[in-house]
Amino acid sequence: MAFVPHGVLIAVQDTGSSRIPCVKNSGLDATGGRGLMLVNDFATRWRFQRDPTATTVWFELT
């Protein structure tokens, strides 16, 4: 987490997968798959970065 001029920048990292992170429409009974949907709805902007060992998604909240 870091502070930016008008908010906060948050980064989340995991071991990644072979797929590009994308917003999904999860069903009402789904137990996962809502993270990027929430980020997309609330963040000013978000992006991701991948390297051979991890995927990092960062987002900015103002």
Rank of each mutant, 00 (worst) to 15 (best):
M1V: 12
A2I: 07
A2C: 05
A2F: 04
F3M: 09
F3E: 13
V4R: 06
H6T: 12
G7M: 04
G7W: 00
G7C: 04
V8C: 12
V8R: 13
V8W: 11
V8H: 11
V8N: 08
L9G: 07
I10V: 15
I10A: 08
I10C: 12
I10W: 05
A11M: 04
A11K: 03
A11F: 02
V12C: 12
V12M: 10
V12T: 10
Q13M: 07
Q13W: 02
D14V: 08
D14T: 11
D14M: 02
T15E: 13
T15Q: 13
T15A: 13
G16M: 00
S17L: 04
S17T: 13
S17F: 02
S18R: 14
R19Q: 15
R19K: 15
R19D: 11
R19C: 09
I20R: 15
I20K: 15
P21A: 08
P21K: 14
P21L: 08
P21N: 10
P21Y: 14
C22A: 15
C22W: 14
C22S: 14
V23M: 02
V23R: 01
K24I: 11
N25L: 15
N25S: 14
S26L: 06
S26F: 06
S26R: 07
S26H: 03
S26D: 09
G27H: 11
G27T: 11
L28A: 15
L28K: 12
D29P: 00
A30M: 06
T31I: 13
G32Y: 11
G33C: 03
G33M: 01
G33H: 04
G33N: 05
G33W: 02
R34G: 06
R34L: 08
R34H: 09
G35Y: 07
L36M: 06
L36T: 06
M37P: 07
M37G: 13
L38P: 06
L38C: 12
V39H: 02
V39P: 07
V39T: 06
N40I: 00
N40V: 01
N40Y: 04
D41V: 03
D41C: 08
F42M: 14
F42N: 13
F42C: 15
A43D: 03
A43F: 05
A43P: 06
A43Y: 01
T44G: 04
T44H: 15
W46Y: 07
W46F: 09
W46A: 01
W46N: 03
W46S: 01
W46R: 03
W46P: 03
R47C: 09
R47M: 08
F48Q: 02
F48V: 01
F48C: 01
F48M: 02
Q49W: 01
Q49H: 15
R50P: 01
R50D: 13
R50F: 07
D51R: 00
D51F: 00
P52I: 00
T53P: 00
T53C: 10
T53A: 14
A54V: 00
T56C: 06
T56H: 04
T56G: 06
V57K: 03
V57C: 05
V57N: 02
W58F: 13
W58R: 10
W58C: 07
F59Q: 03
F59W: 01
E60A: 05
E60D: 01
E60T: 00
L61R: 00
L61P: 03
L61H: 04
T62V: 08
